[in-house]
Design a protein around this nucleic acid. Structure first.
Length: 495
RNA sequence: GGUGCUGUGGCCGAAUGGCUCAGGCACGGCUCUGCAAAAGCCGGGAUACCGGUUCGAAUCCGGUCAGCACCUCCA
């Protein structure tokens, strides 16, 4: 059994073999912090959190680099080059760095709630201007970039003569170059397919840096190449991002790094699919964005209620990362209930008493559970099929509940199997899938609730239903549910 | 227009040639129960359409229809 990753570059699954075991270098394109993160952004960072977590689980020493894009990009062709961030800053009357800080903080806040692990390095574009300039100088020196009016462009046509520009994204270079002649006239670029490495800043542009070509700011693609090279070297294991970044962003990264480092930069390219809403990709240009703060609070016309970070994480993990995923209230509602069911069973499992030396009285069931547990690693190793992992866990849930309800004898399963279930559930639910119980409660609230449960239990045994129902009904009003268990006990949980 | 992807039950979604097509949610029946909730058991019902390859296809091939993504900032 070995981890297999779907490599977007070769378009097939490949066995994962690190370049320099036990080290693994992984670069993931991070957020542009010119605005608030939305539901769509949750997908890549949760997807690659799973990748990171699983690699750690396998014992690799992973350097996980995820950038913050805090310098602006360009607007569309034909318009004056403009820094998105400075434009918004004028509107909000904030310093550019103040704005960037605000959204960076918000991003961190949201993804802590999603329980994603922090990257080991989170470099900013503005903090690596020097490295980017150095890389551009190198590209010019090697003859693959040219300067025009203080801006520098990458010469795609020249690159394409010796290398396969377009392989990653399935582009045909002739098509890219052909459209050139039509639109070229007043453009600085030699070919439309060329992309900017450095842009001269117009006088009003707030974010600007000195460079050999005058004041300006870096192009978008160069930041990732420069930072990935700096922290992961000229050839590293995994590069991830949304599939909308394949072209031109990742294609251009490959071109830049290949020339500078004399080697293609990445062994395994991974791309997650999009989250859609009513079938359309969520994005600013579509005007269908639900931000994460709106999602968590329910404050959006499209939302019937607030959805918790774990519900969204679970929702995303129920689908394979390369499949499309469509948002709907019904789907989120279903995820919310499913997640609850999984955690209820997990809590029951954790609370099962461990008795040493029990032989399984139901060998068939015992074998079946072990077989099901054996499947879990196979699922995750199959290109991170979290949907199958969750399905596999759910298949064991009825057995756990049945043991609790004494529908199945407590000695049906051997001590070893019970132990293994506890261990595997912990590893898969918490360590690998990164799910956590949002309903967990702390002392002394927990003790108070246990006391109330005990009072209800006593009242019921005396058939004092007035008291017992009063406790249950009043608690229900404040969102706490009390349930009578089969064994005569009373349990409770937060709604 | 170019390139690529997708179309699975009421909803969300696994599974790419072969035991009955996972799992979650919803729904129906039953059990348990002071009532309730939960839980357990059982159940129905899907591979867009047409044709082909094959002993056998959701899965491979061709066509039709529908939808999406990228080609411009985009997770």
């Amino acid at each position: 059994m070995a981890l297999e990753i779907y490599n977007s570059y070769s378009r097939r699954k490949e066995v994962f073999e690190p370049i320099n075991p036990p080290y693994v270098g992984m670069y993931v394109c991070g957020p542009t912090v010119s605005g608030e993160s939305h539901l769509g952004h949750a997908r890549p960072y949760i997807t690659f959190d799973i990748v990171y977590r699983y690699l750690l689980h396998l014992g690799y020493k992973v350097r996980y680099v995820r950038n913050i894009t805090d310098a602006g990009h360009f607007e569309e062709e034909g318009r004056e080059a403009e820094d998105k961030i400075s434009k918004k800053a004028l509107l909000e009357k904030l310093e550019p760095m103040e704005l960037v800080q605000k959204y960076t903080n918000l991003f961190h806040w949201a993804f802590r709630k999603f329980n994603t692990l922090d990257p080991t390095i989170e470099p900013t574009a503005t903090g690596h201007i020097v490295e980017q300039i150095a890389m551009i100088e190198d590209l010019i020196a090697k003859g693959y970039a040219y300067e025009v009016n203080g801006s520098v462009y990458f010469d795609v046509e020249k690159y394409a003569k010796g290398y396969d520009y377009g392989k990653l994204s399935g582009r045909i270079i002739e098509d890219l170059l052909e459209t050139t002649r039509i639109l070229e006239s007043q453009d600085e670029k030699r070919n439309k397919a060329d992309f900017a490495l450095w842009k001269a800043a117009p006088p009003k542009h707030i974010m600007r840096w000195k460079s050999p070509w005058g004041d300006g700011f870096p192009g978008w693609h160069i930041e990732c190449s420069a930072m990935a090279t700096k922290y992961l070297g000229s050839y590293f294991d995994i590069h991830g991002g949304g599939m909308d970044l394949m072209f031109p962003h990742h294609e251009s990264e490959i071109a830049q790094s290949t020339i500078c480092n004399a080697h293609p930069p990445v062994k395994y390219w991974m791309h997650n699919n999009m989250i859609t809403i009513n079938g359309k990709k969520m994005g600013k240009s579509y005007n269908n964005v639900i931000t994460l703060t709106e999602l968590f609070s329910g404050a959006h016309p499209l939302l019937v209620k607030a959805f918790s970070p774990m519900t969204i994480r679970f929702f995303i993990l129920q689908t394979h990362y390369r499949s499309g995923l469509d948002f709907s209230n019904d789907a989120l509602l279903a995820s919310e209930k499913g997640l609850r069911r999984l955690f209820d069973a997990y809590e029951i499992l954790k609370a099962l008493p461990f008795i040493e030396g029990v032989e399984a009285s139901d060998k068939e069931l015992d074998n079946r559970i072990n077989t099901q547990l054996d499947e879990l690693p196979k699922y995750i190793e199959d290109d991170f099929n979290t949907a199958k992992v969750l399905a596999g866990l759910f298949e064991i849930v009825p057995t756990i509940n049945s043991i609790k309800d004494k529908v199945i004898a407590s000695d049906s399963l051997s001590s070893a199997t019970i132990n293994r279930m506890k261990q595997d559930f912990h590893v898969f639910i918490e360590e690998i899938l990164g799910l956590k119980n949002e309903w967990a409660v702390e002392s002394p609230f927990k003790e108070v609730m246990n006391l109330l449960a005990s009072i209800r239990k006593d009242a019921r045994s005396k058939r004092d239903f007035h008291t017992s129902d009063k406790i249950r009904d009043e608690l229900a009003k404040v969102g706490i549910e009390m349930k009578d268990d089969k064994d005569g006990g009373v349990s409770w949980n937060l709604q």
